[in-house]
Design a protein around this nucleic acid. Structure first.
Lengths: 199, 199
DNA sequence: GAAGCTGGGCTAACAGCGTTAGCCAGTCCA
DNA sequence: TGGACTGGCTAACGCTGTTAGCCCAGCTTC
């Protein structure tokens, strides 16, 4: 009873989505699961889209925590990212497909999820975005079964991130930060005082 | 009149989807656009899902042609890929979200779309998949507006593909093919006779 | 203790969705 | 002439998200 009814709805929505896919995520189904009728949900939630936005925020938080718990090393970071996504494939899908309503989000969610990656990129925000996109792309294509059946996906991850790791990149392209790939979180020299997170 | 009715439906579906988004892609809407009633569509098409599969194939073909027309140079390849995706964002989305029904596809579609990238990767299929995932990830996150508002996305592309380009990668990780990044389509030394395409 | 407010359930209903069944006009070919 | 096939049609089903409006329990305030 300490959890709000809204949070309860989101928890049920998450489990239904993950267990049976987005087609089963209906208002009537959620209501049944909670022992009430569909219209009653609207006392706690604005719309179905509102529920999906809540799931997105939950997913972002979950990914952020998983990645933060993995420590600063890049290979463990990417492994944690991939592990979370494959453990919650439908939630990951929903979270990345939806455009982000930043104002409706807890203000720290996006940044705290991005911070470890920026650190692993040696503070280079552009490299961090490249890494993020690569990780997302690998996960997304794997989840959508777009790689051919026998493809060695582990190896694609290794090849990608050995190429992207800061220590192996030529110095000329760096943004003037320390070249040793250490985990300093120095913000990139963006116009604004603090660096924009990769997303 | 030389085009089949099915092809007509797909063309209308493509333009409606691109112009107004997936919510407007309804059977009744397509029928209205063609001057008939919704149930008549089922004389030419099995289901709405069948239409979406058709759109996916069209998209794959379109991407393949655009990329092939860009020539062998990696930077032009990636530019063509990104340009196609941003010119047909909803179609790109639909094409990559759907799992691929390979048996229902023209057998050459997937391979021919992949071939130029494998070539640009110096024949290294794993690197080709890494590149593909990176390009897809960059496009996908951009289309979903997941990058923060001021992000320099062009630069993320440059950073990513300068790191991934075969000529700048250390030789130890290569699969023993020519190291000069030339456009030889030599298959990678996979167990099967011809190399598996990246997807 | 009575009155009133409010939170949170309910039923009924609406418009729109994909889809099926069954009917019928026209065309083509034997 | 007649049968088969093509490609329309109407009617309808069960599902969806959502709204309107009702009502009861419990709390607060006279």
């Amino acid at each position: 009873m300490p959890v709000s009814r809204r949070e309860q709805i989101l928890a049920v929505a998450e489990s239904v989505l993950e267990a049976e896919g987005p087609a089963s995520l209906t208002m009537r189904r959620l209501a049944t699961e909670l022992g009430i009728r569909a219209p009653s949900l609207y006392k706690h939630v604005r719309s179905k889209d509102d529920i999906e936005a809540g799931l997105q925020e939950r997913a972002l938080r979950g990914i952020g925590e998983a990645v933060a718990a993995a420590g600063p090393e890049l290979s463990r970071l990417t492994a944690a990212y991939r592990a979370w996504a494959t453990a919650h494939p439908r939630l990951y899908e929903l979270a990345t497909r939806r455009p982000l309503h930043r104002e409706a989000l807890g203000p720290d969610v996006e940044e705290s999820a991005a911070a470890p990656l920026v650190a692993a990129a040696g503070g280079d925000e552009h490299l961090a975005r490249a890494m993020w996109a690569t990780a997302h792309g690998l996960v997304d294509l794997e989840l959508a079964r777009r790689f051919p059946p026998g493809a060695d996906i582990d190896r694609a991850w290794r090849v990608a991130f050995e190429a992207l790791a800061p220590r192996t990149r030529p110095a000329r392209e760096r943004t003037g930060l320390s070249r040793d790939g250490s985990a300093t979180v120095a913000p990139s020299p963006a116009p604004a005082g603090r660096g924009t997170p990769p997303g």
